Simulated scan of single mutants.
Amino acid sequence: MLHSSIFAAAGGRLLVAGLALATLAGCARTVPTTAGNHDYLVYIGTNVASPQENTIYLYHLSPATGELLPLGAMKGGAQPTYLTMDAAHRHLYAVSETQTYLGQPGGGVSALAIDPRTAMLTMLNQQPSTGASPCYISLDRTGKNALVANYSSGNVAVLPVRPDGQLAPPAATDQHLAPFGPHKNQSSAHAHCFLAAPDNRYAFAVDLGTDKVTGYKLDAATGQLAPLPAPAFTAKPGAGPRHLTFHPNGRWAYLENELNSTVTALAYDAKAGTFQEIETLSTLPAGFSGDNSGADVHVSPDGKFVYTSNRGDNSLAVFQIAPADGRLALVQHVSTQGKTPRNFALDPSGRVLLVANQNSDNVFTYTVDKQTGKLTPTGKSVSLPSPMFVEVVPDFTK
Rank of each mutant, 00 (worst) to 15 (best):
L15G: 04
L15R: 13
V16N: 14
V16W: 05
G18K: 11
G18T: 01
G18W: 03
L19V: 10
L19I: 06
A20N: 10
A22D: 15
T23A: 13
L24D: 08
A25L: 04
A25P: 03
G26W: 03
C27T: 03
A28D: 15
T30V: 11
T30K: 09
V31L: 12
V31C: 09
V31F: 05
T33H: 13
T34K: 09
T34R: 14
T34F: 12
A35P: 01
G36V: 08
N37Q: 14
H38N: 14
H38Q: 13
H38C: 11
D39C: 02
D39M: 07
Y40H: 15
L41I: 03
L41Q: 10
L41Y: 05
L41W: 04
V42K: 04
Y43H: 12
Y43F: 06
G45P: 04
T46C: 07
V48T: 13
V48D: 09
S50E: 15
P51V: 07
E53V: 12
E53L: 15
I56Y: 14
Y57P: 04
L58Q: 10
L58A: 11
L61S: 12
L61R: 15
S62V: 08
P63C: 01
A64Y: 04
T65F: 11
T65Q: 11
T65S: 15
E67M: 03
L68S: 06
L68P: 06
L69S: 15
P70C: 13
P70D: 05
P70S: 12
L71F: 06
G72H: 03
A73V: 01
K75Y: 07
K75I: 00
K75W: 04
K75R: 15
G77N: 07
A78V: 01
Q79R: 03
Q79K: 04
Q79V: 11
Q79G: 02
P80D: 06
P80N: 05
P80G: 10
P80T: 03
T81K: 06
T81I: 02
Y82I: 00
L83M: 01
M85N: 00
M85E: 13
A87M: 14
H89S: 15
H89L: 13
H89R: 15
H91I: 10
L92Y: 02
Y93E: 02
Y93D: 03
Y93M: 06
A94Y: 06
V95E: 10
V95I: 07
S96I: 00
S96D: 13
S96K: 14
E97V: 05
T98N: 08
T98V: 12
T98I: 07
Q99H: 11
Q99W: 02
T100W: 09
T100E: 05
T100G: 00
Y101D: 01
Y101E: 04
Y101R: 05
L102E: 15
G103Q: 14
Q104H: 05
Q104D: 13
P105H: 13
P105N: 07
G107P: 00
G108V: 05
G108D: 08
G108R: 09
V109C: 06
V109F: 03
A111R: 01
L112I: 06
L112Q: 04
R117W: 05
T118W: 05
L121H: 02
L121T: 02
T122D: 08
T122C: 09
L124V: 12
N125T: 08
Q126F: 00
Q126A: 02
Q127C: 00
P128R: 10
S129C: 03
